[in-house]
Write a protein that binds this DNA or RNA. Structure first.
Length: 373
RNA sequence: GGACAGGUUCCCGAGUGGCCAAAGGGAGCAGACUGUAAAUCUGCCAGCACCGCUUUCGGUGGUUCGAAUCCACCCCUGUCCA
């Protein structure tokens, strides 16, 4: 009996969007969900209790980074990633496939796998689908991602087809390697911006899905309208029984548009990265707190937010911290930004449960939260 | 009173005849950031009618085709000696 199960709890009568519950060995996740990213076994600058206080139900970590440092065997020896980093809710690990794409200058892709040089010390490594599975098993994540090739935005159809097909053949190898039932493997749909490839990839990928699947290769530089178009194209073909995870998407507007297009799970570095760079998501749109206009602004960052940052500090202080290079600035904004996004997901779920998600989307599109993002 | 050293665009600081509106930092200002090689990166930073012109390198006067750079005097700062 698998420890994994996805139950659709409610389908919005107005929009067709759904609220569901994904059961994992480390607890249940209510979808739609936003997952903060903790690449190197830490959501940058925050302690796990803070990530939890910000409303996170599950976090994402990374195969590529933890394999290089400190090494997956070390994490295994430590008792697994949950214990190592003291996060006891679910963890999803990315496969390292995205690094193939984002660090493309230092690697070489063959049908066997990817040869690359470590960005840390220049040493040479080969990651294959089997190796990615081995690493993720050592880490002990709840959800493992299949090792995929995400082709770059602007790739021609030939290149995109090759990457998509390679992703499918690698998926087959991941599946054959993966035998334990304490971890769930999510396959990844590719196909770049080509609708025919997307549909072909989706159709074949979904057959391998046991308890969920992901859509990769979007939000890689294309206009949002194009991303939405591709999603619209795929939406009618999603199986109902699986949660659908849109990888790498996390701006408030994209989350809302994503849920409308049938997505249940999202992850993104955006809230924590822009936080460290002095920008916050708020109910009034983005606030670049480091800007001069906040020098003497003694009001809270977001008066509709009751996170620790908004309850206790002013924009003037946050600006001061950021401009003084104090780490607390990035910490407080990270805490707030994650709280904001998990709060947005709460609002989305509530609207779905109350069968008014379409009204919610229409109002949201006209709000500063959407327009100033 | 004497001897050195020095005064450069918001700050520090390079520059010792033309390639200098003046290197490089810092500060300031703005922008970017979407499965994190990111507490990072990029741009602006004398003024303007901006492919050119005007005002800048302690002050004044001079030498020169041409001065932040050379000369004279003056003012100020630091260190040391009386």
């Amino acid at each position: 009996m698998s420890k994994f199960e996805y139950k659709v709890l409610h389908v919005c009568k107005q929009s067709g969007a759904r609220v569901g519950e994904l059961t994992t060995p480390h607890g249940k996740i209510i979808t739609p969900v936003f997952m903060p990213v903790g690449t190197q076994a830490t959501v940058k600058s925050l302690a796990p209790y803070e990530v939890e206080a910000a409303g996170a139900q599950i976090i994402l970590s990374n195969t590529y980074h933890l394999y290089l440092r400190p090494g997956h065997k070390l994490v295994e020896k430590a008792g697994g990633l949950h214990k190592f980093m003291n996060w006891h809710k679910p963890i999803l690990t990315d496969s390292g496939g995205f690094q193939v794409f984002s660090l493309s200058k230092i690697n070489k892709i063959t049908s066997d796998g990817v040869t690359f040089r470590s960005h840390i010390d220049g040493s040479k490594h080969l990651i294959t689908p089997e190796k990615s599975m081995e690493i993720q098993e050592s880490l002990g994540s709840d959800i493992m991602m299949a090792f995929d090739e995400c082709s770059r935005y602007g790739a021609d159809e030939r290149e995109a087809t090759a990457a998509m097909k390679r992703t499918l053949s690698w998926l087959d190898r991941c599946r054959k390697y993966h035998v334990n039932d304490t971890q769930m493997l999510f396959p990844i749909v590719q196909g770049n911006m080509y609708k025919n490839l997307r549909l072909q990839s989706l159709k074949e990928t979904v057959q391998y899905a046991e308890c969920g699947f992901a859509i990769g290769g979007l939000s890689v530089g294309e206009p949002k309208e194009l991303m939405y178009e591709i999603m619209d194209e795929m939406q009618p073909y999603y199986p109902e029984k699986h949660p659908r995870y849109l990888m790498g998407v996390g701006s408030p507007d994209c989350l809302v548009e994503g849920v409308l297009r049938g997505i249940d799970m999202f992850d993104c570095v955006l809230p924590t990265r822009i936080a460290r760079n002095g920008t916050a998501f708020t109910h009034n749109g983005r606030v670049v707190v480091r800007n001069g206009i906040y020098k003497e602004d003694f009001t809270p960052l977001d008066d509709k937010c009751d996170c620790y940052c908004c309850k206790n500090y002013t924009k003037a202080y946050l600006r001061h911290l950021n401009n003084a290079g104090e780490i607390l600035g990035g910490r407080l904004l990270s805490l707030h930004n994650i709280t904001y996004l998990t709060g947005l997901m709460d609002r989305i779920r509530t609207a779905i449960l109350e069968d008014r998600f379409l009204d919610f989307v229409n109002a949201f599109r006209l709000s500063p939260e959407y327009k100033n993002m």
